[in-house]
């Protein structure tokens, strides 16, 4: 059976999750899928594509072109081209908010601050240095240390009445600091809020922020309190795409459309 529809696929293989987005000719998101990247990137990409096609009710033939991005971008066997995740987050964010902006992407293992002009061209970008402080990996490490499921952290942070501020740059030293706070009898929600604040501090020290802010990435999608914190720290309301975690994949699909 041939599918006469025309779809463009974007595959974003991140350090933590693989995301696939399917766009139709009108740039509507018709299907998507998100899975743990695991150890076999090619296979995960394939599985995500199949899931996204099921959601779009489309066959494989409908996928006209594919662009892959993220750490595993070269592992996608069905990709026609690759772009960096920096380029794809910029493309995706500009698709949703067509204006000059500062994008803050908080990913599983890296953060990016990307500045775009009013035409969507990159003015500059910064990635976190080699250290994972302030990324999703930091929160994952802390959730394991505190024995709190990662999905419960956002709710706990919102319950905080008095934030416990953490001073260290380093994830390992932060863990020691957290243990010390527990010993001092500090409340868990207050510690979790401190952890979230630590993420925000690491991001905001990467570059100066020029409003408006657009936030992308899985960490923001699953932890809305971080968005609230950005607002309270910068005084600027952060904009969120339809699915922040899919922004890079959407950007990749948009690149596929232009090939």
């Amino acid at each position: 059976m041939t599918d006469n529809r025309v779809l463009y696929a974007g595959v974003d293989i991140g350090a933590s999750r693989t995301k696939v987005a399917l766009l139709d000719l009108k740039k509507n998101l018709t299907g998507f899928s998100i899975k743990k990247s695991g150890t076999d990137f090619s296979r995960t990409a394939e599985e995500c594509l199949i899931e996204a096609l099921i959601m779009a009710n489309a066959s494989r033939d409908a996928v006209t072109r594919t662009v892959s991005t993220g750490y595993g971008r070269t592992n996608v066997t069905f990709s026609n081209d690759t772009r960096t995740e920096i380029g794809c987050h910029a493309k995706g964010a500009f698709h949703y908010f067509s204006r000059a902006m500062t994008i803050i992407d908080i990913g599983g293992q890296d953060n990016k601050v990307i500045k775009l002009d009013s035409e969507g061209r990159r003015i500059n970008f910064k990635m976190n240095r080699k250290c994972a402080a302030g990324t999703g990996a930091f929160l994952e490490e802390m959730s394991a240390r505190l024995d709190i499921p990662i999905e419960e952290m956002d709710g706990l942070a919102k319950q905080s009445t008095e934030m416990v501020e953490l001073g260290s740059f380093c994830t390992v030293f932060s863990a020691t600091e957290v243990l010390e706070k527990i010993r001092q009898g500090k409340k868990v929600p207050d510690i979790v809020k401190g952890l979230f604040f630590s993420v925000i501090k690491r991001v905001l020290e990467m570059d100066l922020i020029t409003p408006p802010i657009v936030m992308t990435g899985g960490v923001v999608e699953h932890n809305s309190y971080l968005v609230e914190m950005i607002r309270s720290k910068t005084g600027v309301e952060a904009l969120l795409p339809e699915h922040p975690q899919l922004t890079g994949a959407v950007g990749a699909a948009l690149f596929a459309m232009e090939l």
């Binding site: 750490y71 960096t84 920096i86 380029g87 061209r121 990159r122 970008f125 990635m127």
Partner: peptide
Amino acid sequence: KTNIEAFIEQ
């Protein structure tokens, strides 16, 4: 590697 590639894209 990603930084360099993204820079050339820029």
